[in-house]
Design a protein around this nucleic acid. Sequence first.
RNA 1: GCGAGCGUGGCGGAACCGGCAGACGCGCCAGGUUUAGGUCCUGGUGCCCCUCGGGGCUUGAGGGUUCGAAUCCCUCCGCUCGCACCA
Length: 978
Amino acid sequence: METEEQRADEALPRYRYDARVANEIEAKWQDRWEVEHTFWAPNPDGPLSEGFDAVADRSKLFVLDMFPYPSGVGLHVGHPLGYIGTDVYARFQRMSGRNVLHAMGYDAFGLPAEQYVVQTGQHPRVTTEDNVATMRRQLRALGLGHDPRRSVTTTDPAYYRWTQWIFLQLFESWYDEDAQRARPIAELVPILEADPEVGWAGLSTRERRELVDENRLAYLDEAMVNWCPALGTVLANEEVTAEGRSDRGNHPVYRRPLEQWKLRITAYAERLLGDLDLLDWSDSIKVMQRNWIGRSVGAEVDFGVEGHEDTTITVFTTRPDTLFGATYMVLAPEHPLVDDITPAEWPGATLGEDVNDIPPSWRGIFGAEAGPAEAIRRYREFVGPKSDLERQAEGREKTGVFTGAFATNPVNDAPIPIFVADYVLMGYGTGAIMAVPAHDERDFEFAQEFDLPIHVVIQPPLAWFEAQGADPEADPVDWPGAFVGDGVAVSSSNDEVSLDALDVSDAKARITAWLEANELGAAAITYKLRDWLFSRQRYWGEPFPIVYDEEELPVALPASLLPVELPEITDFEPEIVADDAESVPEPPLARADGWVTVELDLPRPDWAGGGAGPKIYRRELNTMPQWAGSCWYYLRYLDPTNENEFVSEAAERYWMEPGPGGVDLYVGGVEHAVLHLLYARFWHKVLFDLGHVSTPEPFQRLYNQGYILAGAFVDERGSYVEASEVVERDGRFFHGDDEVRRENGKMGKSLRNAVAPDDIYRDYGADTLRLYEMFMGPLDASRPWNTADIVGVHRFLQRLWRNVIDEVTGDVRVTPEPCDDETRRVLHRTIAAVGADMGDLAFNTAVARLFELNNRLTQVVAETGAAPEEVVEPLVLMTAPLAPHVAEELWERLGHERTLAYEDFPQADPLWLTVENVEIAVQLNGKVRARLTVPAGLDEAATEAAARADARVAGLLDGLAVRKVIVVSGRLVNFVVG
RNA sequence: GCGAGCGUGGCGGAACCGGCAGACGCGCCAGGUUUAGGUCCUGGUGCCCCUCGGGGCUUGAGGGUUCGAAUCCCUCCGCUCGCACCA
């Protein structure tokens, strides 16, 4: 970069807008905005209400970014893309008369900080604070107009106190299915008391507590975790390799059941699905959420089990119309009824006297002469430790074992063999299916593998056989696959009901009605969505506000005891325990001496035995997942210093209403399309049901910004080389002497193609970086970074500056003289277009319009020697949201004392939006043959007449029969000739 | 495999509701300023023909609807993302 000496040597103009001038201006204005509280957004009352009177007549606008995890490695230019976008939008709206809230916080709990501790021994709080400070500095250099008073950090006890408080709201409520909303636990007890089936009066205190606990929105349940004894820690799915070993160290990982907190998000499945219709989100995100929730409509059907009169197995199916075609049943390996129904011996009577008459494959992949129980035990051992990842890696090869038991099909009393197989998942539906191999792809494959019968109950159309290349007369065993399409039911009748000749939807309705009438089943809806596993065996997360009493039942701490602060521990190293399948995971908090147990005098409701007096309690040792803090941070921005409430009602109503979603614009990456957005919506709905927030949804408009991509270079060994060291020669790329191959990928550390914002500030300034990122392409598209392109936007700022400031003297050179009419028209067209584009987040085209206006202004300056104020001032104001520092500087030099942040965004004068003449196209049969200029506003007849009157057009039409004329006023005339 | 989205000059991209394709920027070409290069300024620049008048072609490929298609419909090809035994 150039120095003062070079500048002097080369005699560059002293006052040219370059990196040095830009950096001076940027530092100056960032300081002034801070000192003058420029971006403080006033609340209607309370501690943050200073200045509200001045904006009381404005309507509010809440602009939100997905807040970052403050990692230690620093930003690259891809990170702030969305933040710049929201800042431009917020600044534009502020100039358009809105009271804009825009703030930034930090999502600072989580795994990386904890792993860093293990490497360095530094407390995660220290590294987290360092990282937050670094990130604040880097973001400040971008000139983002945030209200600094509202910045929250999820690891701050004053913040996570309220995360814990919200958890207590979940713990202290239940979901009323009839009312379809959450209600306080206190309202559940009278209902249980009044229900004769519950027999409340006869229950012990412990039984009552257990019954209530089962109904809470936050409840304890056994869940599978990835436990790695060698590392002494539980791992996330992403940390487990396809081979079922730890990513770090390659140690064995065991799937173990562990008592875990879960949140009852499934109760909200229907509302989370339905309320998507209220939101201005992209269809693709809505589709992803809908798929994740995974609603399926069908029926539950009860099957009897031969020899077990008291046992029924309930299956879920979306195809009850194929019930007559069920030829076997499958239970998930973990299904609780498997052990009950498994006989001691392989059945002889039904399939022959000899064990060997049972097909060997039915006895399991490891064989088991000893009997079905042993075969199932071996199969479970084979299936048990596998993670979901492994199951995927194995593909879809079907495995399973015959249980030796038979179910009875309720429609025809036919006995069908019951298998266990891992293609049936315990977590979905009832964990059991009726298998209809003729009409289900997976059942068909399994039936082929195990030689099970295939009964056709939906007649495939001939076209299907033709498309499949199959013989319509063939045995279905020889079909290439199952027929899953629509068709007419066949072979589906008993004495009471017949589905034959009905189409699929009529058959579903009829059989479901019959099942309901005979109490053999019922219509049912299931969801893929599971309850949210909310415990983590980690240190660096929010502690639960929960203790356990002598009965090992959970007791909520009262809100007055919040926050439950993370205890100091000295040793963050996970404890290595025996490297075997039996050892039990223990969270790091177990090592917090003096914290694990606590003496408290906790109140207790009468139904749970009344006041217990001072007692020793054991604390919950798990912590909350990283998602917890990010579920509600947007609400804390509204009232960040409130010590009595998580947010005051007045602040919440002011910024969130009218809804249905309160945040007017939420910008972030698609990677949070499902989990974060679903979890946050869920918490918001619980808070809504309990009356703590006033809108049913948190985020009205969601916008996903794209990624910044960049060239990445791979050497012949297949590893990435530092992209900044690669040079291009004749269209080939070299790293040193080695030729390397170019790829395009997301900018980041792993592809070694990160570009540091500091380098761009140094060479061009922050305004240039902002403008470039907004100009590269539409905000929602991913686009490749190209440092060479930056000069284009830098030149724009330089020309804008030069049009106002004399580069040699530094004097302002504007004139109060009016500009010419054509320039004025360009100005007003630009104002109209830029305003519309900014409202639509179409910043790339807004920038292009500003370029055009500035190019026009450059011409005017060249011709007249001075820039008309009439053009310069609106141009500076329109540039301000995009490049605020240089705009503020020019505004000040133009003689304005106050920041332009609250100046009115220019308004187009309709008078100057009209044009006198327009050029229209004249087409023959749709092809442009001539252009001509006509007065604007001509009607169709006059336009046609004008076209015909044109000598050139007349020549074209000469001797041709015009069959039809299409005229679009102000655009074109199309002669259809024969 | 299923679902969603996207294919426009050498490059990033623009084009409202079906109405002049290629705005704006980079790059490139020519000229000016400069001792030179760079910076900066001015002009040109989709491709192919051309007798310099103009003509032809062009939005992944092919087909269709229409007076008219980058835009709507169908088939195919390519790329990106999401889900992945969900009964």
